[in-house]
Amino acid sequence: MFEARLTASATFKKILDAIKDLLNEASFDCSESGIQLQAMDNSHVSLVSLMLRSDGFDKYRCDRNLTMGMNLANMAKIFKCANNEDTVTIKAQDDADIVTFMFEAKKQEKISDYEMKLMNLDQEHLGIPETDFSCVIRMPSGEFARICKDLAQFGESIMISCTKEGVKFSTGGDIGTANVKIAQTNNFEKEEESVTIEMQEPVSLTFACQYLNSFTKATPLASQVQLSMSDNVPLVVEYQIPDLGHLRFYLAPKIEE
């Protein structure tokens, strides 16, 4: 028996919004420690890694490890039927081929349930090596989204250059060039508005705008985003989901020829 109950179904809506452009379907691996999802997009350029800890749920029971393959567009259709304030309960029997989503309004005046057929996706499980990153940048997630959206008007790629002075986002195309520089802040009072840079070595890498803009669909999940970079390894864009877990995106850099 698997059962996970979360007071805010809005969190699930936000997670689905953030990943459904990159993935058509994905396996949710449920265990005692929580729900995990790890999948590459079809072109193997980006990887989505979601972790929702069992202790972040209002109720969590997982008697046996369970892998639930789900079509994310269909899952999003079901979550559209829930109000943001509804409590969601996800239920499945051991070895089941269906999953049930139950939505309850706060005062129990409306209870609805939706059953969805599970898919056998046979996805590979990937080991992600531990990396000591040369640069780790933390900045307001809204600001990062704004920069990616603004620069995408001018070019297909964004170069992210990190030095101890700050971070520079640059692009260029037919119109001309665009550069946005962000400096480290000393704003210790408002943590969500701060920019912090931990730099071992300066790094400069180029990434596709299209993917960065997809990742920023996760902005409503967290006030801050963390960008981790090293030469020749994927960029990690991480959103911490308060009291529940994290959503990470890995992106292969563009290779200069």
């Binding site: 350029v45 080991g127 290779i255």
Partner: peptide, 14 residues
Amino acid sequence: TSTQGRLDGFFTVL
């Protein structure tokens, strides 16, 4: 010019 890299090779298949 630049080409898009891929993630294959960065991760190990478990």
